[in-house]
Design a protein around this nucleic acid. Structure first.
Lengths: 334, 334
DNA sequence: CTGAAAGCGCTTACAG
DNA sequence: CTGAAAGCGCTTACAG
């Protein structure tokens, strides 16, 4: 026999019907041990593996979870993807990954492709400005990190987390701070900014706070950072908080190019705690997102067949490293 | 009607048989225009989408390509994944991505999962020391970057590319060079090292060359870099070439920690040209891998149903940036 | 050129 | 407890 073995082959070899083979496969206990053994023997002798397509066709259920991220080359999302894969594996599901390039149409296409493949569910880190057709779908969708339509959302508490950074900089003594915000068309960007701003004003109304918006990437951080730091020393902030590590690392680069010492002349804080945050010079103070827990919860929720419009926010933690410190005394004398 | 529409529904509405619907779907030209129109109308009226599982079951062909990488959080591989997705999309295929965590067993499981899903083919960036069961498979496999078993391989010419770095450092005047190699259990690691070493000895037999092996990651580069640079100034190399950008960036960090100026006191070159290479301080001189072309060729080869043991090596290009320069004169006087 | 029918590999009521 | 049969949604020889 050269073909891939099927239930029929197993049934033949075990001397039972295909129905019985299927029952053994399903782990039904109502099969006589004797038959069960024969079947199991045949299965291993033949090296039989169930055809998942056929099974899916019959049951319209699969064990594949689809994950769509805005950009797989963004280290935060690739870390999220790794976490999601682990989480899926824990539940004996596999992960199908797609990247939307922050394009709503591509995102829509990926969703359709996943539906065609009757995935078990879709975890979606929405593209900016994602504004989906509100179709009632027959598979569960959970949004992760960024909300998609009114599907349930798993994310950190962005505002609270951004507040942690505000507290940290304030306690160090900074009173002239710049905030590099994320895109205003993302919920995460908006919430982090609001959280930061409102915490700052709670702390002290007299803090000087400048806000700039950009994309979440390196280039954006570098550009904004450069513009900020090229101001005359007495106008420059003593600390920069960014809405992403990538922005912060870009700003770090700008500081270096301009010749500013971090953290003695300028403090910089990021957000996300990507792997790289701990490798730049100096190591970046940032907010750690618990990606494993976030992904894990998203998978659980999916498998529970939620259909509500829930929202679960986890807490993030501040990680203090070398890029933040007290402001220089009399720094304008520089 | 509330169910998802099937060929049957389309056939009914169009007043034809399901066979005819299927033929229209397949684009067969031997269908009378009149019928074809009726069918197409019914399709859009119903919002019909073919069930890919059923189709796959019948034809045992899908339009999914499986990609397995050793570690999706490694920026080089995530870039490769993005390239592969683009390449697959160009051929109207989708990509299923899995990460093996450099574990041969996990890799094997992913392969099985893909086979169960009757993917169109598998692109495999093999785990270190991958040593597969030589089963004859019924789907094509192409190895990318790192060879898997004796399946066809698409990669750059590692040795030649490493030679480019050797040339560059030599021309700058470096005569005391350290090489941070990749893992000896990867083909890429070995070939890059051999290419570098042999080019150096071709250039000048009297060059002092130290070689260290590590993993391809940041930490490894930082550790080896630190050890290297903590030697007395007259024993230190004037240039470090690394087998990956991550290693080079780690070494860069070590240099910073120790207080060595790059490139005036030490040149550092990487390999791969990940996005970050252009963002560290100073920007990293490196070798650019044409990931789009590599992935594109891998997809093509897969769809051509190759089964040979071919090997295609593309050329990589040297990208000179700020991290390399001529060695300091009389540097031991420091 | 088109329809009726078989079959891809499973699962699951339905009998017994 | 187990077998025979129907059916998931398609495609494709086979007739006509």
């Amino acid at each position: 026999m050269d073909r891939i073995p099927t239930v029929k082959d197993v049934a033949m070899r075990a001397g039972v019907s295909v129905g019985t083979v299927s029952r053994v496969l399903a782990g039904e206990l109502a099969v006589k041990p004797a038959l069960r053994n024969q079947v199991n023997e045949a299965i291993s002798a033949l090296g039989y593996r169930p055809n998942v397509m056929a099974r899916a066709l019959r049951t319209s259920k699969t064990d594949v979870i689809g994950l769509i991220v805005p950009d797989i080359t963004n280290p935060f999302f690739s870390q999220m993807a790794a976490s999601a894969e682990r989480a899926a594996a824990k539940h004996r599901h596999s992960l199908m990954l797609a990247s939307s390039h922050n394009d709503r149409e591509v995102e829509q296409n990926h969703i359709s492709a996943f539906l065609d493949r009757s995935v078990r569910g879709i975890i979606l880190v929405a593209a900016n400005l994602s504004c989906p057709s509100q179709v009632k779908l027959n598979v569960p969708i959970v949004s992760l990190d960024r909300r998609y339509a009114d599907f349930p959302l798993i994310s950190i508490n962005h505002a609270e987390a951004a507040g942690l950074v505000a507290d940290h900089l304030y306690e160090l003594g900074h009173r002239k701070i710049a905030y590099i915000a994320g895109p205003t068309d993302t919920e995460a960007g908006r919430k982090r900014r609001e959280g930061f701003v409102s915490r700052i004003s709670e702390l002290d109304e007299n803090i000087e706070l400048e806000i700039f918006s950009g994309r979440f990437d390196y280039e954006s951080g570098e550009m904004i950072g450069r513009r900020l730091l090229l101001q005359p020393p007495d106008k420059r902030p003593t600390a920069i908080a960014a809405a992403s590590d990538q922005q912060a690392i870009g700003a770090l680069r700008a500081a270096r190019d301009i010749g500013l010492e971090v953290p003695s002349e300028l403090s910089i804080a990021g957000f996300d705690d990507i792997q790289l945050a701990n490798l730049v010079v100096p190591r970046l103070t940032t907010v750690r997102q618990p990606t494993d827990q976030l992904a894990s919860r998203a998978v659980e929720l999916l498998l529970e067949n939620v259909d509500g419009t829930g929202e679960e926010a986890m807490s993030a933690t501040l990680v203090v490293r070398g890029s933040t410190g007290p402001p220089m005394l009399g720094r304008s004398a520089r």
